[in-house]
C-alpha cells in the first residue's frame, strides 16, 4: 500500500459524494437544444401531411402520401419522440464524454480539492448524469443500465438496478446482482480537503440492500449480501455467501433457508 493511501483503520468518517452540479449546466442546455432541433426537423414530414389533411395545401414542398389514418399516428408520434429524445441525448452526451476522457483520462488515487482531476471528474459525471436521469424517467427499467454501459461501467447481464445513485465511473457490477431502492454506490468520496477515487467491485449474485452506502475501494465477493441501512468503509472486503450488516459493516451471519430458520425458532420455543 502506498504512503498516501488511506486504509480501513485510519478513516474516521465517511462523508458523501462531492459532485458540484452547477458549473456544467451549459452542457445540458446544449444537449436539450441540439436534440430538440433534430427532433423537430425529423418530424417535419409528418406535420406537413397533417397540415395537408387540414387545409389542402402544403407549407413544405414535399410529395407525401396522405391518408386520414395519419391522425391515428399522432399519439404514437408523440410517444416515440420521447424515446427518440433519450436516444439523441445519449449519443450527444457520449460524444462529449469521450472528448473529456481524451482531454484528461480518469485515474484512481487521492487528489486535492480544485485540482485538475477533481475538475474533470465533475465534468465527466455531470455529462453522464443527464442521460441517466432521463432513462430513469422512462417506463423501461433496463434503460438506465443501457446508459451505464454506454459510459463504460461494467454491468453484467440480468442486473436489477432500482432508483438510486451509482457513479458512472470505476464501478463493476457482476451478473444477477440486485441493487435495491435508495442506494449510493460511490467510487469517489470527500475526505477532509481531499477526494478519494477508487474502484468499487461487486461480483456475481450479490444483493445490495436498501438505504446502503458503498464507499470507494469496496469489494463484495460472489453471493455476498449487504444488509439494509448499513455502509462499508473505504477499501473494505466483504466475504461471499454471507449477510453483512453494521455501520460500518462489522457483523456477518450465514444465509439460511426457510426450513433451517424455522427449526431454530422451534428449538428456542421448546426450551
Amino acid at each position: 500500500m502506498n504512503e498516501n493511501e488511506y486504509d480501513n483503520a485510519s478513516i474516521e468518517f465517511i462523508s458523501t459524494s462531492g459532485v458540484y452540479k452547477t458549473p456544467f449546466t451549459i452542457i445540458i442546455i446544449i444537449e436539450i437544444f441540439l436534440a430538440s432541433l433534430i427532433i423537430s426537423l425529423v418530424n417535419l414530414w409528418f406535420v406537413n401531411s397533417l397540415y395537408y389533411l387540414l387545409t389542402g395545401t402544403q407549407f413544405y414542398p414535399f410529395n407525401t402520401f396522405v391518408h386520414w389514418s395519419y391522425w391515428l399516428l399522432l399519439p404514437l408520434n408523440i410517444y416515440v419522440n420521447i424515446f427518440f429524445f433519450l436516444g439523441l441525448i445519449m449519443i450527444i452526451s457520449w460524444v462529449i464524454y469521450k472528448i473529456l476522457k481524451i482531454l484528461h483520462p480518469p485515474r484512481e488515487g487521492i487528489f486535492d480539492k480544485g485540482s485538475k482531476d477533481w475538475k474533470y471528474m465533475h465534468r465527466r459525471f455531470w455529462t453522464a448524469y443527464f442521460p441517466i436521469w432521463l432513462a430513469r424517467a422512462i417506463p423501461f427499467p433496463w434503460s438506465d443500465i443501457i446508459v451505464y454501459r454506454l459510459f463504460g461501467t461494467n454491468i453484467g447481464n440480468s442486473v436489477v438496478a432500482y432508483e438510486g445513485y451509482i457513479d458512472p465511473e470505476f464501478v463493476e457490477i457482476g451478473k444477477n446482482t440486485m441493487t435495491s431502492l435508495h442506494i449510493c454506490i460511490f467510487s469517489h468520496l470527500i475526505y477532509h480537503d481531499k477526494v478519494i477515487i477508487k474502484r468499487v467491485k461487486i461480483e456475481r449474485n450479490c444483493v445490495i440492500g436498501p438505504q446502503t452506502l458503498t464507499s470507494p475501494g469496496t469489494i463484495i465477493h460472489e453471493g455476498g449480501i449487504l444488509g439494509a441501512n448499513s455502509y462499508t468503509s473505504i477499501n473494505q472486503e466483504l466475504e461471499g455467501n454471507l449477510i453483512h450488516v453494521g455501520t460500518p459493516v462489522n457483523v456477518n451471519f450465514p444465509i439460511q433457508s426457510l426450513d433451517e430458520s424455522r427449526k431454530k425458532v422451534e428449538k428456542i420455543k421448546s426450551k
Binding site: F33, S36, L37, I39, S40, L41, N43, L44, V47, N48, F59, Y60
Partner: peptide, 9 residues
C-alpha cells in the same frame, strides 16, 4: 415552417 421547427423549444 418556423412554427413547426420551434415547437420542440
Amino acid at each position: 415552417i418556423i412554427f413547426f421547427i420551434l415547437i420542440a423549444f
